[in-house]
Amino acid sequence: MQESEKELREVAKKLLLEKKVDLIIGYEEGTLPLRTRPIFIREADETKKLVWNFRCENNLCFYLKMAKERVGIVAKGCDIRSIIGLIKERQIKRENIFIIGVPCSGIIDRKKIEDILEGRELLEGIESDSQIILKGEGLEEKVDKDKLVHASCKSCKYRNPVLYDTLIGKEVSQGEGEEYSDVEEFASKSDNERWAYFNDEASRCIRCYACRNVCPACYCPQCFVDQSLPTWFGRTLHPSDTLIFHIIRTLHIAGRCVDCGACSRVCPMNIELRMLNKKAEKDVKELYHYEAGISLEELPPMATFKMDDPQEFIK
């Protein structure tokens, strides 16, 4: 990790000095234990602030959507898939983006740390190669990184960038395990159980829209939920309103979602948004043999059709 961080800083510095880019978007250390956060660098000197580690949890594509200059972006496998989506949907121009690809063995899910802490406060977190040491008042616990990896990353098959201008560090081994086991297990429950689950999740939603705002695939100038004429759905906290918001968002990003997991990670109310999105991803794969963010050419599945698309569901 140390090595690649060094390499990253050098690459970024060079890009700025050679004026290949005007801006580097990457990660720096944050103000809370184990937190990193986005940083915007325009001066070569500042590149020493850049970090790359297990804790770089943000998907930085959000910032590409508004960047007007030539941008160098530090991007993990999933972030790059998001970038491919944005290029394909003509939200950004390939020639304006310099992709600094970083192979990634998975990133942290801070909610798992909260579970371990059980209400105690984390005062310090130290990251080593394979472990995180959690320190607090009367607390010192070593946890394997494997146990803290975000659910999206575990079975990720795109840990190595599929598109990049430069690659930092060495390629890593792909994620293992069955990608859709959670979805399948959940699908085997009864209608009522599934409905109760989603209703319960949606009842916690506070409509902060962080999931939507952070989502690289959500770039509509005005979201359907904010539209006033017509006002499609209510703006109350009624679980019907909030669940509809999440379901429609899932439909909107079906075939475009790359399962970067950002929506789940930003949710302050621990709503498991991945469950819906993963299901849509699975369906798109099954029905239309499409995976988002892999090729720059293939049309997004929901924007096209084939004469012989499956239609067993049509009466």
């Binding site: 986005p38 409509r207 902060c208 829209y209 962080a210 209510g234 703006r235 930003v266 302050p268």
Partner: peptide, 24 residues
């Protein structure tokens, strides 16, 4: 610069009090 424009800070804030009236 970093701000995502979400409502977490306002909705979790203990003093924020802006509201909207709307009809349903």
């Amino acid at each position: 610069q970093r701000c995502l424009g979400c409502g977490i800070c306002t909705y979790l804030c203990s003093t924020c009090h802006c509201f909207a009236l709307l009809d349903e």
